[in-house]
Design a protein around this nucleic acid. Structure first.
Lengths: 244, 244
DNA sequence: GAGTGGTCTAGACCACCCT
DNA sequence: GGGTGGTCTAGACCACTCA
């Protein structure tokens, strides 16, 4: 397909196409409300099959970026310039922030090796007392706090030389390096009001958060991490396409 | 395809297949943890293409019923069976409550015909000043408040004889009767702390809610309702399967 | 009626898991 | 190596929207 070489790799054509269209939307090449090229056009332009085009459009639709209308075309959704993430799409927070045109940064606040708690053994399906690495991190976009994250990674079988790197940057990136890329996560969504969560000069007042309480699984079905991420209400926009 | 005639109709083959497999899972024909027939098997059994089979499997996976593993097969999820309100699954609140084994009840608090506000015209894509029916309702499960819902339905083209019925029971049911069954909704998820939301003797203190701010669309892509539903934190469990 | 998205097919090749 | 899912193609027909 005729897009920049940097996009090539082992990511699927559909994903590459979605990324490309998304970046064009972000850059303003396709403005909100505007109609995107038809599926047939996209087939010709990118030299892919229509199935691939449709897969990409469905991804963008699930992210709330485009609105596909039968018989009319696909239109760029009008959304507030905030960070908009499709809830059902699993990706690193860093990547999501970067894709929305902001600069992500992770700041590690605490890091501790300790036995897993009862909750953690249950969520992760590991033996009682198994060793885990517990992290407390702050997530920033353009130096503004967008979330506080509390992550727990089982250390059994985890490469020793990579342990210190956990939480230094993107957790996903380190997990991927260790060969256990999360491919699925089961998340619970909660509203939390708690002044004791968070830290730093930008600590939000009042402490109102959308909590994603989630267990990450590898492709083989084993739990690789348990995360509680508190997203500062209003700074991160979660959208879900619900269908029946 | 070779399934019961009652399933035939205007629903897609993929949906019929998904429904069929789901009912077999529910009936216990396929037990949790068990492997489903391979995609190739399903292609032969149901006499459909592999794309159709895969579409159906992806639907079941998104509902958390099936776990598809590359190279191994598709397995019936064993974390299922419990109480789960899949966020990406669009259904009426009443049905969801009933499926969770509780008795739903809707109590209409207010109902007003009025011109749409600026926000509503934008969300619903209707002309400025178009008439809408605005509802304020309380959602109960076993007589306990689980949510407060603020719904707006455009009245242009809506059957006059059904207007009074809107909000009396399930909104979905009335919309379906009017021939405009919501098939998709784009929802934003927020955490809200607001003491002024809600009413009645059970009004929660403090007022902490998970807000689903959503626009419902018909199959044809026209907006049929705009809802802001405030779910009392802790009483309704939202789960999302996230994949990449 | 022309153009758009919605669905479906048959076939191909690749990546992964297991034994 | 054999079976399984992951991705992709080219082509077909249908349903819907809009001028």
């Amino acid at each position: 397909m005729s897009m920049s070489a940097s996009l090539r790799g082992r990511t699927s054509l559909a994903r590459q196409l979605a990324e490309d269209v998304r970046s064009r939307i972000m850059s303003g090449e396709f403005a909100p409300g505007e109609r995107l090229p038809s599926e047939a056009d996209l087939v010709r332009r990118y030299e892919v099959s229509r199935v691939t085009v449709r897969t990409a459009l469905r991804t963008l639709e699930a992210q709330g970026l485009v609105d596909v209308r039968h018989g009319s075309g696909s239109f760029v959704s009008d959304f507030g310039g905030g960070i908009r993430a499709g809830l059902q799409e699993l990706r690193s927070i860093s990547d999501t922030i970067r894709e929305m045109g902001h600069e992500p940064r992770m700041e590690r606040h605490a890091s501790e090796r300790r036995p897993a708690t009862a909750t953690e053994t249950a969520k992760l399906g590991i033996p009682v007392g198994a060793e885990v690495l517990a992290l407390e991190r702050m997530v920033l976009a353009d130096e503004q706090v967008v979330a506080y994250s509390f992550d727990v990674v089982p250390l059994d079988g985890f490469p020793v030389e990579l342990v210190h790197q956990l939480g230094a940057g993107s957790l996903f990136a380190t997990l991927a390096e260790a060969g256990i890329m999360p491919s699925r996560a089961l998340a619970e969504v909660h509203a939390i009001s708690d002044e004791t969560i968070g830290w730093g000069p930008q600590k939000p007042v009042p402490g109102l958060y959308v909590l994603l309480d989630q267990v990450h699984f590898s492709r083989r079905g084993s739990a690789v991490a348990y995360s509680r991420t508190y997203f500062v209400e209003g700074r991160f926009q979660f959208v879900v396409l619900r269908t029946n």
